[in-house]
Amino acid sequence: MIKTAVIGCGGMGNIHADRYMSMPEAQLIAVCDINGEAAERLGLLAGVKYYLSAQEMLEREKPEVVSIAVPTYLHVPMVRLAADYGAHVICEKPLALTSAEAEEAVRYCNGKGVRLFVGHVVRFFPAYSQLAEGIRQHGGGRGGIYHAKRAGSHPGQVQEWFRDPALSGGVIVDLMIHDIDYIRGTFGEAEEVYAFEHRTETMNYASATFRFGNGTLAQLEAFWGYPGAFHTAFEYAGADVIISGGTPDGESVHVRRAAASGSAPGFVETPASVLLKDPYYEELEHFLRCIASGAEPKVTAEDAVQAVRWAEAAVSSGATGLPVKLDAKGGIL
């Protein structure tokens, strides 16, 4: 049994805690949040100790693995703190607001001898892993056209810090990064990105096209403040195959109540999947197994750094209106 703890008791922290509780190989031992109410609520729900101070929790509980589900601008300080206490770290995406900070987080964990994993959960959604497999089987190396989008309400309605790009990174660094990591994992290294971004208090829309060496084009949209339900969509077209999917079309159960429903109170929207082991469970279980075996995960901390790099490049293209070249390492040329 791996002893786990969760820092941050918001939407994602609740998901991590819930999955650890139902995982035979894990034992959730404590949760923590500077918001006492959130910490207490989750602590009572999970039947574990709850703390207001991460340091105190780490000191007293000595978890082997710590999930970090705090606002993005606090990721790196929390990663370092957990590493200082010798805990392996599973950090929510994006790893950091800048690639420099993301690299620093990786270096720090390496230096402390702890493993670092980042929750790029899209790789664990069966629709997307099957898509990647389908692309591979049907000659994806010869190039194709990929479209993906991710749109929902503005998370700033629930958590004010999302509205400030200096704290959240905005819709590209926070939301599009899911699809950025996915296309990097599926298509390899991109040569260039060309992007548009529009941001106001109530909406943040971005559109970015990544061009890969074999001619593959990936056109991504990310939208906070979409006036409708959260949804995702993808389509890959190659010479031999077209594969498309998305939510909510790709769901099999809808429970519709007469009363209005929406996000769980106080939580930012997250996609749900009706599976015995949902993608968050699969992701966390995979990371725990990698810790036990020493194996490389499906998505590494270095992948997470590169995803932030590509997101930075897209933000930069959106700001200048010019295409931005990416070098082989994903850096901006």
Binding site: R142, G143, G144, I145, Y194, T209, G215, L217, A237, A239
Partner: peptide
């Protein structure tokens, strides 16, 4: 814009059959 030739299964086509126009 980007343009390319990606959708001929026999790889004989020379004219652009794909692209993205911004």
């Amino acid at each position: 814009a980007y343009a390319g030739t990606l959708f001929d299964p026999e790889h004989k086509r020379t004219i652009d059959d794909s692209g993205m126009v911004h």
